[in-house]
């Protein structure tokens, strides 16, 4: 009886905690979705209107028709994809070398990577700005791609190294005897086996790039290359300096988040998949 009672109590607590966490993380986003489909008159109304009286897409229409939000989306997608790609390629190579190649001095290198990862990016803002100006890269996508890739490189390297280390050494040695080159082993053996890890890491890097604000605000000043976070920030005070267009901002935030959600859903299966099963005995 006691077991049953405590079991139910535990289950109840679990459900409660899950519900609380869900409310905490999904709540604000849900609120934003609701705001984005409310008529403007209901958004700032007091008392608060939770469920809109009618659903409207006027904010979304305004977002794409009156502003170049489609352009921001493209810019964010291009910059984030390129930065993620660059970061993952470099990260994979570094992680492979650190995890599997037994290079002398790699522990020291690891410490340095960790130290670099701890530097707050804001410290780099001014020096990077100077560098970008010198390279004539202000208002150039490269000004975002390169720093994004570099800033995420320590994270990607450390995470991938941890995953690569789990791949049995025998497998890589068998591959060497079979005639794979070192790079061949990375791309034909390690990468397919680490697909879940790679997908997870890539998504996290991509999300960082997608959400990054301060570099994007500083290095890009023309509207043509602005990314979504900067674009959203620019929505305030457009119609009048005294009005914050909450509907427009919410619609922009929802639109900007949607690609990330889709991305995670696509890769979800990959992330969960356990591919190494059967590599070894048992």
């Amino acid at each position: 009886m006691q077991d049953l009672g405590s079991g139910m109590l535990r289950k109840g607590c679990f459900i409660l905690a899950t519900a609380g966490l869900l409310l905490f993380s999904v709540g604000p986003f849900g609120w934003e979705v609701l705001t984005s489909i409310k008529p403007s008159s209901e958004i700032a109304q007091s008392p608060v209107v939770y469920v809109p009286s009618r659903v409207t897409f006027e904010h979304y229409v305004a977002l794409f028709a009156r502003r170049d939000f489609g352009g921001y989306l493209v810019n964010s997608a291009v910059v984030s994809s390129l930065a993620t790609l660059l970061c993952m390629i470099a990260g994979m190579l570094a992680a492979y070398a650190l995890a599997k190649l037994n290079i002398p001095g790699s522990p020291l290198f690891l410490v340095i990577v960790l130290a670099v990862a701890l530097v707050p990016p804001i410290i780099l803002l001014i020096p990077l700005y100077e560098m970008m100006r010198w390279a004539d890269w202000i208002n150039h996508r490269g000004a975002l791609v390169l720093p994004y890739a570099a800033l995420n490189l320590p994270f990607a390297t450390l995470v991938l190294r941890a995953f690569f280390r789990q791949i049995p050494q025998d497998l890589l040695e068998a591959a060497r005897i079979d005639g794979f080159t070192r790079v061949g082993i990375l791309f034909k053996i390690i990468v397919p086996l680490s697909a879940p890890a790679l997908a997870t890491t890539a998504i996290l890097v991509f999300v960082f790039c997608w959400n990054e604000f301060i570099f994007a605000l500083t290095f890009i000043t023309t509207d043509a290359y602005k990314t979504i976070p900067v674009g959203i920030a620019g929505l305030s005070g457009v119609t009048s300096p005294y009005e914050i267009p909450w509907g427009l901002i919410s619609a922009a935030a929802v639109t900007g988040t949607l690609p990330l959600i889709v991305l995670v859903l696509i890769f979800q299966r990959r992330i969960v998949q356990g591919l190494t099963a059967g590599a070894l005995k048992g």
Binding site: A174, A277, A279, K281
Partner: peptide, 12 residues
């Protein structure tokens, strides 16, 4: 050619 104790077959 080498045969490993763990077989070391490529799982993928």
């Amino acid at each position: 050619a080498m045969v490993f104790q763990s077989y070391a077959l490529y799982p993928h």
